[in-house]
Design a protein around this nucleic acid. Sequence first.
DNA 1: CTAGGGTTAG
Length: 576
Amino acid sequence: MLAAKLTTILNIHLTANQAKQTHACIIINGLNSLKPLLVRQILLSTRNSSRRISQYVHNILYHLPHPDSFSWGWAIRYFSQQGQFKEALYLYVQMQRQGSCPSTFAVSSALRAYARTTHKMGGMSIHAESYKYGFSNCVYVQTALVDLYSKLGDMNTAQKVFDELAEKNVVSWNSILSGHLKSGNLMEAQRVFDQISKKDVISWNSMISGYAKIGDMDRACALFQQMPEKNYSSWNALISGYINCGDMKSAWRFFDTMPARNSVSWITMITGYSKCGDVDSASKLFDQIAKKDLLTFNAMISCFAQNSQPRKALQLFGEMLKAYANIQPDQMTLASVVSACSQLGDMRFASWIESYVNDLGTDIDDQLATALLDLYAKCGSVDKACELFHGLNKKDVVAYSAMISGCGINGKVGDAIKLFDMMVDAQIHPNLATFTGLLTACNHAGLVEEGYRFFSSMKDHGLVPSIDHYAIMVDLLGRAGRLQDAYELIKSMPMQPHSGVWGALLLACSVHNNVELGEIAAEHCFALETNATAYYSLLANIYSSAGRWDDVRRLRKLWKENKLVKLSGCSWTEST
DNA sequence: CTAGGGTTAG
């Protein structure tokens, strides 16, 4: 009687609280057989995941003597779709420990989790199992396998599984298509694309963004025009293609003519402007957004953080918390906020963020961990940074670069160089930021030869040194007293040196008392910087230590005429 | 009763 009533209840939509009440009722009356339905209802009633729900579902499954494959399937599917891959895979393992036979639902969900985390061994073991359980004729499982190997970059195996598929559908085709696109085989991708008889929106969009990513905007645009039905993503793919080519004008033209925009359209444009350093345009665009959500806030906050406007980033974060109480920050938000804090050298936030993250119940992903690592390293806690670094699932360029520069700042040049070697061994390509950290480390320790070697090796990695790299090198050579070498390096620069470059030489000349080069450097500094007080005093020091008092007097006069006021020194660290 | 594919911020 009661069981029948509860069954009815469990078949209608329930809120989280109603589900809990029903759960209590089930426990009191010992109606274990209803728990599968309950699991389904709970997972259906929750839109966004949280640690609480996962704990709740865990508890139910844990207390069932023999959870059925139905409940396992629901739970694993749920976490896999929510992007909580660790949870999903943990449940999958639990299921096998209990001796339950996996369903095709559980298997395909688990495969999705392994594919998204690019976990080769895990995925391959499920592949083996799928033969054992006789799932090799299930199109869902096989397609998930095609996707797995595509994401792993193993196109041979992907193709093999794909060929074995008796009945391929669009999803299967799209999976193999995305594999070819990911491995950069545009020819093969185009061939596959042409073979798809029933192309859907995803087939078209994949192909468009494939061409857009390699900068072949003509082909991308042609396909875009050909496509029968476009959605937001079609437009967004084309727009981000133009942005990647640095063609903001065309990007804007398409953005402007879009019939309607979604959040991704807005953030694509905002981050486009952000990459060009055009914070004003990004900001203007952001103000136009009628419905601001987490995505758009994140894009704008990270725009500020990336363009050295940490205060504005933090300010916007504050506005978001205040005015949009219903928006919960995620790892992305926090990563930007942490990055802003580390730019300000503000340690107060680090511990606050940690407790905040714990309160929210979201786990720290690699991106957030990398941002925290950077913060700790910049604030002098190398050990803590190291701990975070080793805990990363995947160490990418950003992580290595942050760690290298962290070691450099804290006087661990040896470790910085070791990390760099490790990184190259791991086939991770260093970028400009990596070399900034590395050269700074060498500079810090006065390792001229090593620094010079790394600087020269940049071109071997396909990198063109930026003006800042030259500035570090000039500083490094200069401090070591190799003033002439530093001067030659400046003269060899392919771009116009800024005041930082000449300033570094001037400083070195002041340390090593070189009047001749000092004058040249100072002259350039005066020309480049309106507020040149510091440079005047440096040159004055050079003159006075050379005993050239006439020149000192001449300079003082010049200084007064320009009505320059000596600035008081200030720390780059935020004052508390 | 549920599953597999693309687009997106540091």
